[in-house]
Nucleic acid binder design. Structure first.
Lengths: 151, 151
DNA sequence: TCATAAAATGAAAACGATTTTCATTTGCAA
DNA sequence: TTGCAAATGAAAATCGTTTTCATTTTATGA
């Protein structure tokens, strides 16, 4: 796994190296994202960050996420409901399984699909811009919570 | 391939069997979707259908798509921009490669990923609700158009 | 054929996630 | 410390999609 303690500092350096300034808000948002394997929705992040930055605006969360994504520090996940979650970037050819309840993420490297993609591109003449291989489901904790709610 | 000529009629029967009524608008929308391998965006479909149904409202397009999806006659594709396209349903475990330019679709059955998914579910305790394996790119025609535009 | 109830329609308004605008504040290099 | 570019929050704008509501249309069965 990644060296979580030092990761936030790395990200802050990365931001600074790219000409961005370090603000209290950014430190807090970076800390939250870098220290978690979860994928956060913007509002979740907003709520979590406001505990330490009371005046924080949701817009700033979006703007910070945009920069972190641009620097490949976080990655944006599309969800079936059309909204997004933001996740500490995975390295290499990894895919994700996201819990629709809490945003917890399991990363897997699974089959290497590159050969298939190349074959497809060759056969069809398409230029492939991006691909999605994502699983959506419920983590054990959220399954339990759901059973609880039903009872 | 599917028997395109009879397909629209099949869909209309299916709608009727499910208690939905057949209207001029529905016939036109069904005809468009059933006779094409392309994935239409709602507005595209709206524009195409208005040539034969001048007073058509966009809302009706959405409502018709909703019903066709419910009956598994069309499938909804999520796109990177967050919008959707609607495609004549593919049968079985097929995946799609969508042209971001024109919505043309190539269907492929690729590797069977079921074993991988089962293994993941077993190992993590997740219950998998759905999965996405989609490729996005440009079809040869749209690549050519893009080169044209650049020149 | 006709009356009727249920379903479908279009217009307009509502929605909700995300983005933009703009005036003010803040970080940081000189 | 100063000055300027970058960052911020509030409010408004966007845009795809959905809901509401009054009106029209379809299919059924008398």
């Amino acid at each position: 796994m990644v060296d979580t303690p030092g990761l936030a500092a790395e990200w802050l350096n990365c931001l600074q190296d790219s000409g961005y300034k370090l603000t209290r808000t950014r430190r807090v948002l970076v800390e939250l994202l870098a220290s978690s394997t979860r994928a956060y929705g913007p509002i979740e992040l907003y709520d979590a960050a406001r505990e330490r930055c009371p005046g924080l605006g949701l817009v700033t969360v979006y703007r910070t996420l945009e920069k972190l994504e641009e620097l490949s520090l976080v990655q944006r996940l599309h969800q079936p409901d059309g909204c997004h979650r933001y996740l500490r970037a995975t390295q290499g050819h990894q895919h994700v399984m996201v819990c629709s309840g809490c945003g917890e993420v399991e990363v897997f490297s699974g089959d290497n699909l590159e050969p298939l993609f190349h074959r497809l591109a060759d056969q069809t003449g398409y230029s492939i811009e991006q691909h999605w291989l994502q699983l959506f489901g419920l983590c054990p904790a959220c399954q339990a919570a759901e059973r609880q709610a039903e009872a």
